[in-house]
Design a protein around this nucleic acid. Structure first.
Lengths: 260, 260
DNA sequence: AAGTGGTCTAGACCACCTG
DNA sequence: AGGTGGTCTAGACCACTTA
């Protein structure tokens, strides 16, 4: 990097969403690293260059690169492993099955969930979804519906009814067959096959009552209270790339959250 | 500090919940600072000594103190203000009204809420609460019930029915009169009058239906779906000091959450 | 043994706030 | 002007991983 924090020429980069021209060096490094991730220079799960190598590349000290990486690791974009290197975050690991699902069994255990695909088709998204995903009017979307089921002593019990919407342009080859054949986290499929990395999400929670259709799919009585979880997920650059609404049955499970 | 990271004598401190004997220096500094907060050496809202002063006191470099403070600031224990100093976090600021309340109006705005005290009395807590608060059997608790109301074009509408339980030993002078007279955040009262600082919390969310009593207080029909939010709040040292259950009416509001 | 991230230091300078 | 936190550097050494 040729700029120094105090001596950079004004004007800077003309990118669509550039960092402020005179941000701290480590913030500029961070932006550059995010762009490399976005451009696919390093794939999910792979190691990025070492701190000293990046420092040499950008012409800054190792400590400055370190601070940039620190923030990215705090934001779950990167994962540090002492002695091994720094890796691009991935949804591939077993531990991150259902990355954003905050569902916990009432005994405190993490439930083991099975998926059952209900539907996958391309269609126009409802207005609310089109707005959230910034779809141009008429731009197609992919809808996916599925159930998550927990195994209980009495057998499989549906716990979550999920309804997903994805921008059609980003998920061109996504079909029911592809989904049904996939083993592993959904977000892993998205990152591996469609180069879409889910980074963060916003959720809106409400209590609702089950409609007739919901009740049948979840195998509960009509009018059962359900936790409605509307989620908007973002990839690099705060670009929304998935909208979903989950209906959670909270009789033996709950949504767990930590506040700081 | 007389210990160095590599040359400390084994054994270390015999405190009930000590840090590992050979943790990094900045972690040890952090523990010492937390203990000072816990002991009330610096009051909420007040400035702690400057980084250089703390570095001199502990016999480490300013950068090491800085890293300790960084982590505490990230955990909302301290607040940094450039040019002014580092301050003990407080619930006194207007901005932190309803510190842990994640309620948002459906138009995205932060609702202005009024409180209405329903009840405050000392009594034995139910088993679930006693367990969560680690109360000894027979140890008394303080129960507080209240409503939060939002102003709408049609007038005040109840939105949250809160049911709090506090350890009696920590909240000796807490009465209905004291609560009714208090202006400002509840947690500010707790920190100012009872020296109890709420640091973090865990919540469990469920969808339930309003009972007759709930429905009347919230002015909704019996059977209305409500968002049940059970919260356990902690002070320094992960000590649980408040249990509450809120019933949220989510027809015009929702619970907002960010996932990373 | 060599490479990686993790910790610690010492010193310089900048940005912000107050008197 | 002087104090505070914020950034950046350069170098040392430690802890962990792999070969």
């Amino acid at each position: 990097m040729s700029e120094t924090p105090s001596g950079a020429a004004p004007g800077g980069l003309a990118a669509p969403a550039p960092a402020p021209a005179f941000s701290p060096l480590y913030q500029q490094i961070k932006s550059l690293l995010v762009r490399s991730l976005q451009a696919g220079e390093w794939q999910p799960g792979q190691a990025i260059p070492s701190e000293t190598e990046l420092a040499a590349r950008f012409g800054v000290s190792q400590g400055t690169v370190r601070k940039a990486i620190d923030e990215m690791a705090a934001g779950n974009l990167l994962v540090r492993r002492q002695g091994k290197g720094t890796f691009v975050a991935t949804h591939a690991e077993q531990a991150t099955q259902f990355r954003f699902l905050r569902l916990t069994a009432d005994d405190g255990s993490t439930p083991t969930l099975q998926r059952r695909l209900l539907d996958c088709r391309r269609m126009r998204a409802p207005l609310e979804v089109s707005r959230a995903l910034l779809l141009k009017s008429g731009e197609p979307a992919v809808q996916v519906r599925r159930l998550l089921l927990a195994s209980t002593p009495e057998g499989l019990q549906p716990v979550v009814l999920d309804d997903l919407w994805l921008p059609g342009g980003l998920f061109k080859g996504l079909t029911a067959e592809r989904l049904a054949a996939w083993r592993g986290p959904l977000y892993r499929l998205f990152e591996a096959e469609f180069a879409v990395q889910m980074i963060r999400a916003e959720e809106e929670l409400r209590a609702v009552v089950a409609t007739a259709a919901d009740a049948e799919l979840l195998a509960v009585a009509l009018g059962t209270p359900l936790l409605s979880v509307a989620r908007l997920s973002f990839t690099y650059g705060d670009r929304p790339v998935e909208w979903r609404r989950g209906l959670y049955l909270t009789t033996a499970h709950h949504y767990r959250n930590e506040l700081h």
